Simulated scan of single mutants.
Amino acid sequence: MIIFVFISIAYLILMISLIYGWQQIPEFSSNFSTAETGFSIIIPFRNEGENLPVLLKSLAELQYPADKFEISLINDASEDDSVEICKNFQQNYPEFSIKILENNRQSNSPKKDAITTAIEKAEFKYILTTDADCRVPKLWLQTLNDFIKNTQAALVAGPVSLIPPSPPITPPEEGRNVKPFRAFEELDVLSLQAAGAGAFGIEQAFMCNGANLCYRKDAFLEAGGFSGNNEIASGDDVFLLQKFQQKKYKVNFLKSQEATVQTQSQKSFRALISQRIRWAAKAPAYKSLFSKFAGAIVLLMNVGLLVGAVLALMEIWPYYPVLIIFLLKFNVDFALLYLSAKFFKREEVLRSFFWSSLAYPFFSTYVALKSLVSGYEWKGRKFRS
């Protein structure tokens, strides 16, 4: 019980620190300054025929001079009509510089190889990555241009949210209902966004998302690119962030609704678990002490709640300390999630927070343990943790 109490105190301190960090980051809006920054937008894809039209349509609507950005689409052995969709996009928008490349596989990480393949041919100073199942905002590049001019950051992590359910349900009051599975996933995404940004706010950045990540090409090359972790299938974002920090490059979080990239929700609970196992599998390779501490405390807190609940039911532990700790965790988690949900204008999903908070310890514990003992499937390929 004493150990559980100490873990709980550490967890509360961690969450309060992340809440403070989130609030320390000011919201940023574009001031529509002169477009000076050049961007090489890099998008790896594999069997994304269903999602690419949404992404490509959003890219065509970018409000930024066409001579200041290029789009590199890297095919990773697709077996559907993804390449044909990309070629049609290239033909329909001749005013854009669009490259369709084949992935040059060199490691155990197809995505890192694809990004590296594109960077070798990139013409602009800043690399900007997103995923094929995303949708980018019209002012994405303009906002990044303004932010980079203000901060001179070598790496900018941008916000990511789920694409809202569509078509919208009418009448409006019925739109308050969110499917339980999707609500659970969205709350998880909101918590990850808030935690990641909060860590930037206290200068302990350890998490970002490759669906919205911008960095200088020369800094990437000076840091050695993905070398040293390219045998880990995922982590093109987190490991690069850690490398930039080791090199003392300036890294920032862009807290801007105008620069928020939206991504598709997972199609099933099984797909969600597989995705989270993939994310968790890279955690043992983290080098940041803060990231190791945060990951361990969050895991121990969730495991502790499960063990505490079982021992309380067996009347080995008194139930009230476990209940008090759960309520403290409930409130501090809600505070962080509320800030994130308010920023992304998704407050309605908080209606599912209570039952999600009961389910989350089971979910996170299972994902963490599964990531340690088994592999996972990603884009039709199997990888070992």
Rank of each mutant, 00 (worst) to 15 (best):
A285H: 12
L299N: 09
L299S: 07
A283F: 15
A280Q: 14
L305P: 03
K287N: 10
A283Q: 14
A309F: 11
N302G: 01
L311G: 00
F293K: 05
D333Q: 10
L305H: 14
M301Q: 14
K329W: 13
S288C: 06
S291M: 13
K287M: 05
R278Q: 10
L337Q: 10
A296E: 12
I277S: 03
A283W: 15
R276S: 07
L306P: 02
Y320F: 12
A281I: 01
I324H: 00
W317T: 02
F330V: 00
W279E: 13
L311P: 04
V322W: 00
L289N: 15
V322C: 02
D333M: 11
L328S: 00
L306K: 05
V303C: 07
A281F: 02
V332E: 01
A335Q: 10
I324P: 03
F334W: 10
A280E: 15
I297Q: 09
F334M: 08
E315Q: 13
I316K: 08
V310R: 08
V303T: 04
G308L: 04
F326Y: 14
N331I: 10
L327Y: 11
P318R: 11
E315M: 10
F293L: 13
N302C: 02
L305D: 06
N331A: 13
K292G: 00
Q275W: 09
L300H: 02
K282L: 15
S291I: 06
A312C: 10
Q275T: 14
A285Q: 10
L306G: 01
A309E: 09
L313G: 12
F290V: 04
F330C: 04
L311F: 13
P321H: 00
V303H: 04
S288M: 07
L337H: 00
I325K: 06
N302I: 00
P321F: 02
V298K: 12
L328N: 02
K282T: 13
V303E: 04
K292L: 11
R276F: 02
L336K: 07
V332N: 03
R278I: 03
M314V: 05
W279I: 10
L313S: 12
M301G: 12
M314R: 08
P318G: 01
G308S: 04
L323D: 01
I316A: 04
Q275L: 14
A309D: 05
R278Y: 03
W317S: 06
P321L: 01
Y320E: 01
I325D: 05
L328T: 07
L306D: 02
N302Y: 01
Y286F: 15
A309K: 05
R278V: 02
N302P: 00
L313W: 08
Y319H: 12
Y319M: 12
Y286L: 12
L313Q: 09
I325W: 08
R276G: 01
S288E: 09
A283N: 14
K287H: 11
W279M: 11
A335F: 04
